[in-house]
Design a binder for these strands. Structure first.
Lengths: 115, 115
DNA sequence: TGTAAATTACGAACAATTATGTGACTGCCC
DNA sequence: GGGCAGTCACATAATTGTTCGTAATTTACA
């Protein structure tokens, strides 16, 4: 999903947030600054290449900031911007919505197993 | 994004809604039932195959219903479920958030063009 | 004290997996 | 002959992952 088709901001928002990792990364940054390696530990399944790529995408969109801490070894800190923090309740709401959806599905189809 | 990794409902919600079309289709169903061909007219860039596929995915997730209208020619109506309607304000909020993000970006970087 | 190994944050080349699209075709009706 | 709602086989585009290498510094251990 590289290109925009509808010009609708909803499509743009989804273009930014689609994919497996971006919302999860935002989620893991809720409690404050984290370093690259810490984010890898948070979700061990992500490859470093993808992590780099996804973080850069979020950075260039203005959702997070990337700060290189000068000194001894290279240290990089990632942190939500104000806009990033505003996103948090929205993705939480999506998670809640999904859980509610699942509950409905289970309640609506009891005849599948019961007689 | 076929598989789940984190088990987090946020990831599940994104797995359901990721991609170019799904949120747009929900959006176009806000004002009520629509038929297949009507949805194609709403967004002419979607291919019929993908439209079918995306609608089926939303249906099997419980976001929309698919109703075949019996009679003469094949007629199919798609409509948001109650859960689908609950999703609407969330994706609208995402659109608003994105617009706000864009405004910030423009306000934050005036030095790029000004002296 | 010296050397090997690990950590940190990547970049480049390549490979696999998913998503999306095209064109041809169907059966039905007016 | 054209609209409706698809299906099927195929093709391309986009996303996501794997492997290898880098440069610096810190720790492990003999």
């Amino acid at each position: 999903m590289k290109t925009t088709i509808s010009g609708c901001p909803i499509e743009d928002a989804m273009r930014l947030l689609s994919g497996r990792w971006r919302t999860l990364l935002v989620y893991y940054l809720i409690d404050g600054k984290k370093r690259f390696a810490q984010l890898r530990r948070d979700n061990p399944k992500i490859s470093h290449r993808i992590l780099t790529h996804e973080l850069r995408a979020l950075e260039s969109a203005g959702v997070i900031t990337r700060t290189v801490i000068p000194g001894k070894i290279a240290h990089v800190e990632y942190e939500l911007t104000e806009a990033g923090h505003k996103l948090v309740p929205l993705i939480n709401a999506l998670g809640d919505w999904y859980e509610d959806l699942q509950r409905r599905r289970q309640a609506e189809a009891p005849q599948l197993t019961a007689s």
